[in-house]
């Protein structure tokens, strides 16, 4: 459903993405791994147009676009089919948990308020935030905020959800509750593209893995192959370092 070809991005003279290819099929959970500074977050942000890629093309639902020439209207239309979960949650601070979830429906999609609230409550229930409809983000813990952010992503019924290091800003004891929600989404067949440092999560939940370094894909394959039988020396070193921790 999503295919990226030769995407490139530089910040000034720093080349962050040096031509990356990526393929996600419906129902896939793709984990993007790699050391800090490898360009994985930039890749995700470029895919959802939060950064403007310098060149490259992509296919979404069979329609082809180029990153250089895509129009604002197309970006807005594509974004309505996707959702993004941020490292820092980025909840709307002036809105309650429920309003955070319904905002994209009522304002972005002109849905009736009652219908949106019904969906919103269902999604908050789903991520275990049923007791917190009317809490403001400032009154919630990091883990709770991230679960609201996931409910917000789910509410718009996206074809794919992008996760940008969704647990990196959390206290260790709060990581579990967020991963638990993501695990259950994966089981339901949600298509997910996840930048993460959580090796055990990637190993257990993802179907495909992409390992990046210096703006390039070093190794890509099924999760089983990647973790049990990595081809590249760099990947083995990375995984070896990981198990020593």
């Amino acid at each position: 459903m999503l295919e990226i070809h030769n995407i490139k991005k530089s910040f000034g003279s720093l080349e962050v993405l040096k031509g990356v290819d990526l393929r996600v099929q419906k129902g896939d959970v793709v984990a993007i791994l790699g050391p800090s500074g490898s360009g994985k977050t930039t890749l995700l942000r470029c895919i959802n147009f939060l950064e403007k890629a310098d060149s490259g093309s992509f296919t979404f639902d069979g329609q082809e676009f180029s990153y250089e020439a895509i129009r604002k209207k197309e970006i807005a239309r594509l974004r309505k089919k996707t959702a993004f979960v941020f490292q820092n949650y980025n909840l709307f601070q002036n809105k309650t948990a429920l309003q955070n979830v319904t905002e994209g429906l009522v304002i972005g999609r002109k849905m009736k308020k009652e219908q949106a609230e019904e969906i919103g409550r269902r999604m908050l229930d789903k991520v275990g935030m049923g007791e917190r409809y009317d809490y403001y983000p400032g009154q919630l813990s990091g883990g709770q905020q991230q679960r609201v952010a996931i409910a917000r992503a789910l509410a718009t019924d996206p074809e794919i959800i992008y996760f940008d290091e969704p647990t990196s800003a959390l206290d260790p004891e709060l990581i579990g509750e967020v991963l638990e929600v993501m695990r259950s989404l994966a089981k339901e067949g949600m298509t997910m593209l996840v930048v993460t440092h959580e090796m055990s999560f990637a190993r257990e939940v993802s179907s495909q893995v992409i390992f990046m370094e210096h703006g390039q894909v070093v190794e890509a394959g099924t999760a089983r192959e990647f973790f049990n039988n990595p081809r590249e020396a760099r990947t083995r070193a990375f995984l070896g370092m990981d198990s020593e921790e």
């Binding site: 959802n48 147009f49 939060l50 807005a76 974004r79 309505k80 996707t82 959702a83 993004f84 941020f86 820092n88 980025n90 909840l91 709307f92 601070q93 002036n94 809105k95 905002e103 994209g104 304002i107 972005g108 999609r109 952010a149 917000r152 992503a153 718009t156």
Partner: peptide
């Protein structure tokens, strides 16, 4: 980040400005 989140849930620039 809240502006980016606004775009990601399908709001326009003006909707983000006015409501968020």
């Amino acid at each position: 980040g809240q502006i980016e989140a606004g775009y990601c849930v399908g709001l326009s620039y003006w909707q983000i400005m006015r409501r968020i």
